[in-house]
Computed example of a mutant assay.
Amino acid sequence: MKLNWTLKPYPTLSLEELYALLRLRSEVFVVEQTCAFQDIDGQDQTALHLLGRTETGELAAYTRLFDAGDCYAQVSIGRVVVSPAYRRSGLGQELMHQSINACERAFGPQPIKIGAQLYLKAFYESFGFAQQGDVYLEDGIEHIYMLRP
């Protein structure tokens, strides 16, 4: 599937784009994963937002990217999400490739840190991420920190 990828700082997001990304995050992280948590966490304003849209404009994939010091000491990728309607198509891999490349373009080549759900460890390892530290609980879900040198 071919998506149109755009990378935008918060102030340049249209209302429609902001609504679509918040809706997708809520659909997956709150409803699908049955996890009541504060998704709107005050960090969107400092993030770069990577949006993958279909030819019809539907948001199919999304991440938010942070410069070193904004979220962690390292550059980071978070809120990695693919719409349920577009899963099992390789889009998650494309999203991570696009996210890593966008980090390198925006912040230069440097280590990237993520807080990953434990069950996705092997997925992230396929992109060069390695576990850093022990498993921790975040909103009742097992997570691990991972770093890509």
Rank of each mutant, 00 (worst) to 15 (best):
Y136G: 08
D67P: 07
L24M: 12
L7R: 02
A73Q: 13
S89I: 13
C71Y: 09
A122H: 15
L120N: 01
R23P: 13
G133P: 05
L137I: 06
V82F: 00
A130E: 15
Y10R: 13
M96F: 05
V28D: 12
A102Y: 10
A116S: 06
S76D: 01
I100H: 09
L48S: 06
P9F: 07
K121V: 11
Y72K: 11
G42Y: 14
D44S: 05
G78D: 01
P84K: 03
K2V: 07
L91M: 00
D41E: 10
P109D: 14
A68Y: 00
G133Q: 06
Y119H: 10
T56L: 11
K8M: 05
M96W: 03
E17C: 04
V75S: 10
E58D: 09
A36Y: 12
I112F: 05
Y119N: 13
V82P: 02
S89F: 14
S14L: 01
V31F: 04
E142M: 02
Q117L: 05
L7E: 02
Q98H: 12
Y145Q: 14
G92I: 02
S26H: 15
G69I: 10
L147E: 15
I100L: 03
Q117H: 08
L3G: 00
K113V: 14
D134Y: 05
M96R: 08
A102N: 07
